[in-house]
Amino acid sequence: MRTALDVLYRLAQALAATCLVAIAGLVVLQVLFRIVDGARKAFGLDPVGLLVPSLAEICGFLLVGASFLALAATLRRGDHIRVSLMLQHMPAGLARIFEVWCLLVAVSLAAYFTWYSGGQAYDSYKYNEVSIGIIPIPLVWPQIVMTLGLVVFTIALLDDLVTALSGRKPSYELAVKGEAWEGGE
């Protein structure tokens, strides 16, 4: 079970990173096309007019993938921003109660959001919603990716909630923190 969950989080993160690579790749390709056309013009040739169709829209969709698929991994690495000032200065027992409270709020919100995000994807499918640019892209695809990212996020929050309830430290508390100036707080 543990291994399966960890693989899930890592897989989602890898897909998110792939989305970023794809954005960079497509944009660089578009710029290369402009350079090719510019060079042809300089030599008196007709421009080819190469373009990456619907570049802006596709990159927007890829960004949705990058942002949502990484939610779980970002949580577990402790990279989502919170102010844990009070938590660190209260007795351990009380801090644990607050930790559970935070996770409860987050998991209910994430579940709520997942449900309606799924509803939105289904609606786009039912009404055959498409993007408006040169290539009509069915919106259901990026919206499914957004929903899947939220599903994995909800699972990760549940995972940590169970951990916190059983008295252990949640994943983000154990993560190696980024290099702080004097060891952070």
Binding site: D37, G49, P53, S54, L55
Partner: peptide, 14 residues
């Protein structure tokens, strides 16, 4: 607009 540009022999640009 892409088609219009193509038919005019222009280079469609986004």
């Amino acid at each position: 607009t892409e088609r219009l540009a193509q038919l005019a022999g222009a280079v469609p640009t986004q």
